[in-house]
Design a protein around this nucleic acid. Structure first.
Lengths: 207, 207
DNA sequence: CTCCATACTAAGCGGTTGCTTAGATCTAAG
DNA sequence: CTTAGATCTAAGCAACCGCTTAGTATGGAG
């Protein structure tokens, strides 16, 4: 999961590899960095353009508006984190939940730049774009709830309030994007492991 | 804790009761609502003034700048939530942690409008103001860590990573401000109770 | 009554915003 | 070489930003 030895830009480039042409990708990466750093509304199209090394007008060659840049980031970001959960299979319910929390929390640390935009700029999206992203968020919630429900059915988890526990687990992982700092003491993998342990403690039976 | 039967404005009014004169308080409350709703940078001083029922220039009678409005909100918000934790005493370590999580999470639900500004607009503060608020945040972290450490010393909690657990508990409570909606299924008190239960499960010994 | 501090508004200033236009430059096909 | 299409820049537009200025209303002290 963790791609050590790569700087922030290389990590972002990894996420947005599929975006072409290259200038459009550079623009997206610049937008992610700027939005994550100062917030969507505090970022100007001139900020983005100059970060991408181009003129302000070049933004509008590849994107209809500043909001469309945000939508692209939000969409790909949600799809990526959903794919992470969807890829988890095999093992028992304990291993699957452990895996899910470790990957999901780890992603919010390693790709905290993207994750911050994804999680904290939802309200800046247009009505239609927001609805599209909201559907992805419901799918993410459904996946995580299923991982917990599986263990309850198997009798290895004790969870009095399934929806409440799902909410708390997702919330815990998502909030990593808020406080995580690359220079900190914990690596994304360590955060994933810590959180997986804490969540398993939360759902384990009493004795 | 929960003050049922009061609308959003009355709740805000309760928090900012000490601010005088009345026009300055109305301005602060308008700012909290606008900042929470659209974010600091997307809110204009004209928005705030018109929400308070006054002219744009009236803002500057009572506050030096838009940032000073934010600082006032952030400072009082942090002081309020710190006071919540500081007021907890008596009982055993289990009860104190249960109480602390219930109150702290509950506050982030009930006063989610204020809490959102407090938690998500830190980067909009000036250097000096940010430093002042950061000190309060360190005190909050210290308080919560002490509640957990007490139980470890008494032998009623099993926590392999004290700092990691503290981080997770605070993070869990704080993130309530992001997802909480007044019309939702759970009341602030119910969220507090749910979260207190989940946290106690997280720190209980394996037995 | 006068005097004066306080609280407010109408108008607007300089600067910045998202975005557009007109035109330059490049590449590749005919 | 010519042409067409795509990609970029320089310049700038209308709207809006945080904040200021000049002036008005109010109410209490002397």
């Amino acid at each position: 999961m963790t791609t050590t030895g790569l700087d922030g830009f290389a990590l972002l480039d990894e996420t947005w590899r599929a975006v072409t042409p290259e200038a459009a990708r550079r623009m997206l990466i610049a937008a992610v960095q700027a939005f994550a750093d100062k917030g969507y509304h505090a970022t100007t199209t001139r900020d983005i353009a100059s970060l991408a090394g181009m003129s302000p007008a070049a933004v509008y060659i590849h994107y209809r508006s500043k909001e469309e840049l945000l939508f692209n980031i939000s969409l790909v970001g949600h799809e990526t984190s959903l794919a992470l959960l969807s890829a988890i299979e095999g093992g028992d319910a304990v291993q699957r939940l452990e895996n899910a929390v470790a990957k999901f929390a780890g992603w919010h640390a390693e790709f905290h730049t993207t994750a911050r935009v994804v999680q904290y700029e939802l309200s800046a999206l247009s009505r239609e774009h927001h609805a599209q992203v909201a559907e992805l968020r419901r799918q993410i919630e459904r996946r995580m709830r299923a991982f917990i429900a599986d263990g309850v059915e198997e009798g290895v988890f004790d969870v009095p309030d399934l929806k409440g526990a799902t909410l708390a687990v997702l919330s815990l992982c998502i909030d990593v994007a808020r406080w995580y700092q690359p220079g900190g003491k914990r690596t994304p993998d360590e955060i994933g492991a810590l959180y997986a342990d804490l969540v398993l403690r939360m759902v384990r039976p009493a004795s």
